[in-house]
Design a binder for these strands. Structure first.
Lengths: 209, 209
DNA sequence: GTTAGCATGTAAGGAGTTACATGATTTT
DNA sequence: AAAATCATGTAACTCCTTACATGCTAAC
């Protein structure tokens, strides 16, 4: 239950883990974290906060939340600073530990990746490989489709499909580099990649599912 | 009115322009046309067809639509082959001629591009430039955000943002190449790019809006 | 004194998905 | 006889956006 907006939930929880914040600031931080174009709207964020509050994962930080006290020095409109509860921290830890199919989706992967610094090394590799395998499956499908229809389609359709193909191929290479870095720096946290060009393992590590 | 699913509407109309088809086949063709991963579901396609039918843009092709005649040679379940009506052709032509902001969106651009072979040369360039300018705006925003937070974020967040940035930069280069090809082959339809490396024009052609 | 930024929220709706319901035909 | 593929459709639900409603403070 309460599965909706898993990606957004995780982003909010992860950012509140760093420091308590109010909604307006949270929105900017989420946009910066995953800033590749999509802009989170208040119509999404505030209902999400409300739900997290209901579920007891976050709570208002009464020391920082200012009510509209007219005599106070700090003017500003009443704002609600939220902080993580113990349950919230626990729930976030659970989300971080997930490495199943749900963490390989387009939307979800980015959020998981953004919090990799707080993710267990083994989980990191599992997520990266899962994501890569998912993309390679897709690639296979697109390549087949391209081969079947090649020369029967106009140059624009071809260019579009080819560009899409290359984009995914590029992402797979990126993931492979990250996986190699993780493997060579295994066990340690946050180190520079080794001086020798690491060899890429080409076979699948896991049989997909 | 009737604005919903503009991208899907256009894809369906464009494919039916080639040849009459029934829903099941249409789904596969749409997936092949824009096959970069997302798979169109029946829950989207059939309601869309129904609406296009209501609006008189498509009609059942009675010569090919087989009712469940039990005595017939061709067994198979009753299937409904749709064809474009005159209004449908007209509407598709209007969609093809659009070069405003709506054709620069992530979803919509692909569909417009896929039918470029049937699009006027001037419109093609306008759409390509609009799309490129939109991406460059975005790029500016992301670069600013990256500069503000650089060194304050961990290496994973940085890697994510950098990868996103490079993806968009790559798409901009792709668009610039296409624009150059269009410009040098101006007026003509479907010719190979010229032997001399065309120079890239770097300044904005249109002042955004 | 008005524009821009800070701050929180709701209502309506758009664009899809998944899961279900149904059933024929072809391949293994 | 089971599984895959062909074929059409609906209901419920998800996740998100736009537009609205409200009002305060700072800067120009």
């Amino acid at each position: 239950m309460a599965k909706r907006g898993a990606a957004l939930d995780m982003a909010v929880l992860g950012l509140l883990h760093e420091a308590p914040m109010h909604g307006y600031e949270l929105r900017k931080r989420v946009n910066a974290l995953l800033g590749w174009g999509r802009v989170l709207s208040y119509g999404t964020l505030y209902p999400c906060l409300k739900q997290l509050l209901r579920n007891g994962l976050i709570a208002p930080d009464t020391t920082q939340t200012l009510s509209g006290s007219p005599g106070g020095i700090t003017g500003r409109r009443a704002r609600i600073v939220y902080k993580l509860t113990a349950e919230g921290k626990e729930h976030f830890a659970q989300l971080l530990a997930q490495s199943g199919p749900s963490s390989w989706d387009d939307d979800t992967f980015d959020v998981h990746f953004a919090f990799f610094a707080r993710t267990d090394a083994q989980t990191r590799v599992r997520i990266l490989e899962g994501r890569r395998n998912r993309l390679e499956e897709r690639l296979e499908g697109v390549r087949v489709a391209l081969a079947r229809t090649r020369e029967r389609v106009d140059k624009y359709t071809l260019a579009l499909q080819q560009h899409g193909l290359e984009s995914v191929e590029r992402e797979v290479r990126w993931l492979n580099e990250l996986i190699d870095t993780e493997r060579s720096g295994a066990g340690h946290d946050a180190v520079a990649p080794p001086r020798s060009r690491p060899r890429r393992s080409q076979r699948r590590q896991h049989p997909i599912k």
